[in-house]
């Protein structure tokens, strides 16, 4: 005897729904499913599935300066942007979450605006502003541009983390005599560790993958990996891009896995 009652009508709908869903999942994963095998293909053909397998494309990627230099530039920019955005965004997010001040709605609106403003607009604005400051085409301008771009996401994540904390802990610490900075470092920061780590990871990945703002801000000496890839795709589609794509996907995958694991992780049981 079956445990559940069979309803052939409902079952037919379920099977149809499952089939459609599988098709959409396949469509979503298609880019990854195509690029990864190709990355292990041969160096002279863009065919799928590859006729022979090798690590040649990765060897080209990791040995040619025209790809390696953008890779290091991207790492440098992403690390710098993550550092600056955390140093600014964490205290700012805490302050916005916990305090009322004059013009709060306006100020948070301005800080959050890069989320809704089309990225091209932000990119052009940063380009014009940095031209005015005469720091265009420098690594600094890229770092600052990425900070402006990632800041709202970091602040939102920190605010969400702070809202989950018990306000009495902070007030209690203050009553017991702790100053603001001491309280922040000993009470707020330790409890926020999961939010801090995921915000930093997210900021790093956003910056590392960012194309549009970098497209406006890079000079010939500060080309980032995504910009290098974008201009490569604009002109010729070479097989080595499959290896670069696989590398970018692997970075995303690592960040994705860490972020999912972090959700289950709490500072208390660690």
């Amino acid at each position: 005897m079956s445990e559940t009652i069979r309803d052939s009508h409902a079952r037919r709908y379920r099977i149809l729904g499952d089939a459609l869903a599988v098709a959409v999942y396949l469509f979503l994963l298609a880019p990854i499913l195509v690029t990864i095998p190709m990355a292990f293909g041969s160096t002279n053909a863009l065919s799928f599935p590859p006729t022979s397998y090798s690590l040649d494309l990765f060897r080209i990627f990791f040995s040619s300066p025209s790809w390696l230099e953008p890779l290091f530039q991207s790492i440098e920019v992403a690390l710098g942007a993550t550092m600056v955005v955390m140093l600014t965004g964490v205290p700012a997010g805490y302050w916005i979450a916990r305090h009322e001040f004059v013009g709060k709605a306006l100020i948070t609106g301005i800080i959050m605006s890069p989320i809704v403003i089309p990225t091209v607009v932000t990119g052009l604005g940063l380009y014009l502003y940095f031209s005015y400051l005469r720091i265009n085409s420098t690594t600094l301008s890229l770092v600052l541009g990425h900070v402006a771009y990632t800041l709202p996401y970091v602040i939102l994540m920190i605010m969400a983390g702070v809202h989950k904390l018990d306000r009495n802990l902070e007030f209690g610490a203050e009553l017991m005599g702790a100053g603001l900075i001491r309280m922040f470092l000993t009470v707020v920061v330790p409890q926020l560790v999961p939010s801090l780590v995921s915000a930093a990871l997210f900021a790093f990945l956003l910056s590392f993958d960012e194309v549009i703002i970098s497209w406006f801000l890079t000079g010939s000496n500060t080309v980032t990996l995504p910009v290098r890839m974008f201009s490569a795709l604009e002109w010729e589609v070479s097989p080595v891009i499959a290896a670069v794509s696989t590398f970018l996907t692997a970075v995303s995958l690592v960040v994705c896995i860490v972020a999912i694991r972090l959700k289950k992780w709490t500072p208390v049981d660690a």
Partner: peptide, 11 residues
């Protein structure tokens, strides 16, 4: 101050 929800630092 002693709080209703204890307000102990979990970490």
């Amino acid at each position: 101050m002693v709080f209703q929800n204890y307000a102990l630092m979990p970490h």
